[in-house]
Nucleic acid binder design. Structure first.
Lengths: 180, 180, 180, 180
DNA sequence: GATGAATGAGCATTCATTCAT
DNA sequence: CATGAATGAATGCTCATTCAT
């Protein structure tokens, strides 16, 4: 049984994504990892810490899979934006939920640290997009367009989740690509 | 000590909006209404029913405050769309959360009836916007634009909620108004 | 809606017979009588009193339908015993439960008065049968045979209830008849 | 503070015997075992399971103490029947209640599994007695006599329980012995 | 009498957390 | 490190009873 913390985090992420943080019990996590719930406390001092590390893990996945794309120095801004949108689109089509939005209500109520991580993530992401748009649109307009793009993506993912239609996400990817 | 159910529903909505459905206990609702938790069952047979009626109440508020605006037969499509966006914008600036999106994860896990109400609400809203856009854009394009508009609004509200910036909502309102 | 106490008692008996005393709520009784649970307290000061009066009602039914048969001065002992057994047999074939045995565990725990009523009922019944047998068997043997007959009847009713076979009741009726 | 489940079952049986299943709360069981009510769920997933295992335990006691006697291949049928009746008599004189009959109303209402266990127990017991009587009486008559014997025993135990007289049980043991 | 709202104690069950082994 | 037993507080819900109208 793989009991290294990183496996625990991945399993927890998967459970949190489907059932939410609150509804996922330590026993659920134990069951899914082959550990007993008591043993989880050898790896994480409490459930809140687990939430935080799951959030950091998700942020890490975006750093690696999405943001990296947007930062490649060998590409033009256009290429970098397109690469980022490709990564985002396929990520959400696969998972159908934005884990961080999903976890937000719980983070808000139960963990200041988690809350700030999530907020920072979205701001960082927006700033990243803003940087791509700045050469073409200038500081202020780029900031506005980037904020809008991010909100649109999240809205499209919500729509995918609730209404079940992928169209909104594809449409918004399309239009964001057109920005450059 | 006459507790009319509609007061219970409003209090519950307010609690659900800030803490979520799962995290709001019957005792919380009792405390906020001056009742004991057991007494709530005099008005609602169980917590799920309360959730459903809260959702119906929210939908009713939209019917009255937002959809009505979009249906006024005395106005042009442009005026109706603008009226609807005005109503939506001020509603969300005030509440900073879309209660139905907020309740979605709990509804998904705990109540098929609640889930369907929420899904239907978003589809109905989208269809309403689509009807306004149809004369100008035709069936298919209107549907696409309406879906996109709705997802954008919800995304902007999420952004308002998490990042705390109203700008995304204002920006998206602006652009939806420009559709007509 | 008939709200006289005797209707309440009959409805309660029927509910107690099928669900037991403890599992029958005042609301159940209200629902079954067309009253609201609060109104029951106009007729009975509390649930225990209702239990007691239900027990007295059942005893009254036996007095009228079963014991009377056994006391008719115009008949021989043999005829009276047969008449009693006929009445008992058809009563239990119809109801499949001895209400007083069914209520015993609850009576034992919750009401000294109910407990004593039930105990007295069985002793009285036994003495009645004993009186019928005395001329033929003498005091001591009649007492023994009557006790045995009563226990057999109750055992056969239990068997009918749990195993669902009427045979035991018929068999024991037969043998009791053969005593005279 | 090692609480083995079998102790929990015995304590529960004892409580169920005196108060019944429904009236025995998990807190009662906890109190009687030195556990908190929540801790019982470490050993049994729910109260119904506890009921079922208590019933299986009682059946096991009969298997070991009563049925075994009736199955000894080294004895004649007469000896086996006498041994069984001895065991039954002393068991019920000691406990003064047939736990399975006592639990029947609750089992009937709350657990199909418990209900079937109890029904099967009585049928099995009857068949066992029937097998002892078959050589002497033939299949059909043995079945009838065995059913009658079982119902009599249960009736006598009810009588012992309610009226408090042991005589009925002794009388019926006597007569069952006389069958062989 | 009847009503229906409210009470308060109780119940089965869940769960994050602790800790001796 | 892992286990599994235990904790204690909380949760949704039930119910006999009271009482103002």
């Amino acid at each position: 049984m793989k009991t290294d913390p990183s496996n625990l985090i991945e399993v927890s992420l998967s459970l949190f994504r489907s059932k939410g943080y609150r509804r996922t019990s330590m026993a659920d996590i134990g069951r899914a990892t082959g550990l007993l719930k008591g043993s989880i406390y050898h790896h994480f001092p409490n459930k809140e810490r687990l939430l935080i590390e799951v959030i950091q893990h998700v942020i890490g996945l975006f750093e690696d899979g999405v943001f990296t794309e947007a930062r490649r120095p060998d590409l033009t801004e256009k290429q970098r934006l397109d690469g980022m949108i490709d990564a985002v689109e396929s990520y959400y089509i696969q998972h159908r939920v934005c884990a961080l939005v999903h976890l937000w209500p719980d983070a808000l109520q139960e963990s200041a640290e988690a809350r700030e991580l999530i907020q920072k993530f979205f701001r960082d992401w927006r700033d990243l997009v803003s940087d791509l748009l700045k050469p073409k649109y200038g500081q202020a307009e780029a900031h506005r367009l980037a904020t809008d793009a991010l909100a649109r993506i999240e809205g499209a993912v919500i729509w995918l989740q609730i209404v079940g239609e992928e169209q909104a996400l594809k449409q918004c990817s399309e239009e964001i690509r057109k920005l450059l």
